[in-house]
Design a protein around this nucleic acid. Structure first.
Lengths: 147, 147
DNA sequence: TAGCATTGCATTCCAAGCTATACAAGTGCT
DNA sequence: AGCACTTGTATAGCTTGGAATGCAATGCTA
């Protein structure tokens, strides 16, 4: 009775994420983007001027990871950081024109990746798949040591 | 019509994998293991004496990643590498007693993580979830530029 | 059998994620 | 005002993942 990788949700989730990452990277590299910045951009395209803390809350990323990602984004001309006038600790994050211009092509690339990934599933299966992932994420999210 | 993270299979897969990784790491760190070695160990527990190339094929990991992982495993006393007598390029990978002894506790930890992750799903949902992940992985796997 | 292509692995360099830690700016209390 | 506490970021150091490249051993073929 060995532990079977292909029956393990965790193993499959890891494999799945790597495959998605490979696909997405291939498609957005030509745009000058890398996958780590993508989640942050998705949030900022909806509205920028957020603090690092707000981004973290939206994305469930650890703070040092986000700090690091933002540093790369600033280096690569995707964002600017300006101190919050009311709170000297915080910085508000603003997209550059470059980053704004990438919203269309970048989300199109992500949509294409999702489409390719789910190509083998029926419409019902796709909906089920996404719903189940959402459910598992939600259940795993907090320190749900609930009774 | 913005791109919605929580409707995106790719975003969810990434989030899911991070949550699984956090959980598993917490549980196997006390054993002296880290998550990157886990897939390799699962294969080797089924039978060692494999080459790096064979491990890579089993796990769909890039070669430099595996080389790196194996180097850490050797450093940490989990494996030994011995040259293949018939092929001077290849090395065969053998588990140490330490690594062998960890099979029980480590797979128990992974099983516990899976159980916790899927706790909110019915038995049917669990089966569906795993089956769908497998299907998407399979579809994404090759360079399926099929006509 | 000499030359070339292939194979197996290592190395370098980078991104992206994490933990642990540090530190400065704000807040609250006295 | 002074102090402790909290909050927002940054830094150091590690793991895990990949691309690009190098190199030695092997295999193939003319």
């Amino acid at each position: 009775m060995t532990f079977s990788r292909d029956d393990s949700a965790g193993y499959l989730a890891n494999h799945l994420a790597r495959l998605f990452a490979r696909e997405l990277q291939a498609r957005i590299k030509p745009l000058g983007l890398s996958i780590g910045t993508f989640p942050a951009l998705l949030v900022l395209w909806e509205g920028d001027g957020l603090t690092q803390r707000e981004l973290i809350a939206a994305l469930d990323i650890e703070q040092p990871t986000m700090a690091n990602t933002l540093a790369r984004m600033e280096r690569d001309g995707l964002i600017q950081r300006r101190r919050d006038p009311h709170d000297g600790r915080a910085q508000r994050i603003w997209l550059t024109e470059t980053a704004r211009a990438l919203e269309g092509p970048a989300t199109a690339a992500a949509t294409a990746v999702n489409a390719r990934a789910l190509a083998g599933l029926s419409a019902t299966e796709r909906a089920t798949f996404v719903a189940l992932m959402r459910k598992v994420v939600a259940g795993l999210q907090p320190d749900d040591g609930a009774v």
